Deep mutational scan, measured.
Amino acid sequence: DLSALRVEEVQNVINAMQKILECPICLELIKEPVSTKCDHIFCKFCMLKLLNQKKGPSQCPLCKNDITKRSLQESTRFSQLVEELLKIICAFQLDTGLEYANSYNFAKKENNSPEHLKDEVSIIQSMGYRNRAKRLLQSEPENPSLQETSLSVQLSNLGTVRTLRTKQRIQPQRTSVYIELGSDSSEDTVNKATYCSVGDQELLQITPQGTRDEISLDSAKKAACEFSETDVTNTEHHQPSNNDLNTTEKRAAERHPEKYQGSSVSNLHVEPCGTNTHASSLQHENSSLLLTKDRMNVEKAEF
């Protein structure tokens, strides 16, 4: 173990290094160091905050020279020094078990990766560091076993998940096959086929009936047209017969005018059967003409 005197000496050296690497504005270890034209180094955030307070150039807090945003430059070497100082402080805390008085939040800088452990060898070769390295080497064999167990647990979990997924996939297939086998029997399929065939026959029977009705309507229309044509021909046949009657009536009127007047009046009210309204109107006109002729003949006879 380190003596108290040596611990104090190391602590004083760390404090001196820390004062050199402090920012003059925030009085902390410089984060993202930036250098000016006057070779003074500050935190990048502190300098941008200072420049944004005034429009135009501002003055350096140490030498009062003008500073602009374009004049600022990043210093990589200074950032490396800060990183190495942080590593020294971490090693000091691990070796002594004491917390550094002016320690900052170094938890963000710590890294437990194997590459980081290899890099620590180049920091300080001390008894405390050696003991700590031995402890780490002793704890390393235990870690692979834990990793193997965790991997086995994960693989077993994956296997159970896969088996569950396969079961879920197989179950719908089985149910679907069961439904297909038990849903419709052979008799049901035959009945469905016969039902479809009967429906098709009914459709075939319905369509000819409609065509037959249309044919019957067409035949009825044709018969009505033929009947009207026969009526017209009958009226045409009746007209010459009426003319013959008129000639006979004229002759009778010349011989017996008194008797014919009474008979002509009675004939006005008689309509021949089986004739249309057109034929009756023609008869009325003929009878009126005959009456006028008879009157003329009677007057001539009187004179």
Rank of each mutant, 00 (worst) to 15 (best):
N52T: 08
E148A: 06
R6M: 04
Q261N: 05
A253K: 01
I20N: 07
S35H: 12
E236L: 15
E249F: 03
D188F: 14
K69L: 00
E258S: 02
A220K: 00
S145M: 02
V153L: 05
I206P: 11
T68Y: 06
Y104E: 05
T233A: 02
D184T: 01
Y100P: 04
L50K: 02
K134R: 13
K221F: 14
L27Q: 06
S35V: 05
P208C: 05
R70P: 06
L217V: 08
S152K: 02
R174T: 15
I124A: 09
E9A: 11
S122W: 15
R165Q: 01
V161L: 09
N286K: 11
S103D: 07
E99G: 09
K222V: 03
E140V: 09
L217S: 12
Q209R: 08
E84M: 10
I67G: 04
N52K: 09
E99T: 07
D218M: 03
V10M: 11
T160R: 03
L81H: 07
E258L: 01
T160V: 11
R255L: 13
Q138E: 07
V161T: 09
S122E: 01
R165G: 09
L48Y: 03
L268W: 00
N157K: 12
E9G: 11
D66S: 04
V10N: 15
S219A: 06
N143Q: 05
Q125L: 09
V232A: 13
Q93A: 13
Y260E: 12
N191S: 10
I124D: 08
G56C: 12
I41P: 03
Q147C: 02
S75A: 04
E22K: 05
S58Q: 01
V232L: 02
G56L: 09
A16R: 07
S216H: 05
V7Q: 09
H256L: 06
Q201P: 09
Q93H: 13
E229I: 05
S287V: 00
S139D: 12
E226V: 01
H256M: 01
R132W: 00
A193T: 12
Y129F: 08
E142K: 11
T207H: 14
C38D: 13
K69Y: 04
V190L: 07
I215V: 07
F78C: 05
D119F: 11
K222F: 00
P61G: 08
L137H: 11
D213Y: 00
S58V: 08
L268K: 13
I20Y: 02
I215S: 13
S197G: 12
L21T: 06
F92P: 15
D213C: 08
S35F: 09
K64L: 02
V34L: 09
L85I: 10
A224T: 05
H278I: 02
S183T: 00
P172L: 07
E28S: 08
D200N: 11
D39H: 02
